[in-house]
Amino acid sequence: MVTTTPPIRNSRRAEGASRPGDKVFLGLSRGSGITLLVIMAAIAVFLTYRAVLAISQDSTNFLTTSEWNPAGQPPVFGIAVLAFGTVVSSIIAMVIAVPVAIGIALFISHYAPRKLAKPLAYVVDLLAAVPSIIYGLWGAIFLVPYLGGLNKWLDDYMGWTYIFDKSSDGVARSLFTVGILLAIMILPIITNVTREVFLQVPKMHEEAALALGATRWEVIRMSVLPFGRSGIISASMLGLGRALGETMAVAVVLSPSFVISGHLLDPGGGTFAQNIAAKFNEANEFGRDALIASGLVLFVITLLVNGAARWIIGRRKEYSGAAA
């Protein structure tokens, strides 16, 4: 009986392939899948090609130079400032957004009154769809003036930490502000994914903890958080990927300069994406190649971050990641 199964499957496949309609349909759908792979490969290949064209003309070290002047004679450009700004603003965003997002996810899944929970989840879904340029506009016109007070307070009382020391006057168009804005922007996506994982915690685990007399917080610490740990990590990585590649909000809020400064509250600095958006219009063809080279670095970084997130998700089959 066992041996009869494979022949049936084989014959069905053979029959299916013999029909012309099936052949065409399979070809079309497989072709689409291959098209996607080709696009991914093409992105990597063409960006690398243009980047190599640019970097081979660069008169300094591309990775460690903190200057951007591809039109100069000889051309001088490097990504040190951009890498620093991108990493710092993303770290600030993550430090703020991840705990708050976990809090909101717990609120929706375990704390909110039942009637409130569903509409709330819905609203968070909608917020994830707000275009980034609108966050940017709001950030530049509303958040920046409001953060003046907070910046002054941080400077007065935390100035001794060096990073919160505000050495120059001026509005809060700093990496710190960018980090806060990015945190607000990535909150919805981290919350969404985390909440989905929290809802999948087996009811039995929670009820067992409750039956042992645990308080609600102990239930969360003993059963919800351990179960959701990998989900939280991967959600954070997805958020990090967004924060790293965010262009318009940063371009609108930051007042860029090509200086690496540990004083986070000072205006200045830059990120990969912001620099591309800001320098694009004035760049000639070689300048555009230089920008493409910096874009390639961004591409590789986000690829690594997202790949790691997917790998962590992939180890847990129960969670599909569809909402991402």
């Binding site: 996607l36 063409f46 994406a273």
Partner: peptide, 20 residues
Amino acid sequence: FVDVMTGIPSIVAGLFILAT
């Protein structure tokens, strides 16, 4: 790669079309 593609920054997609 579909998963990885979800995370492509929009500006990188723009740069790709620009380059080609």
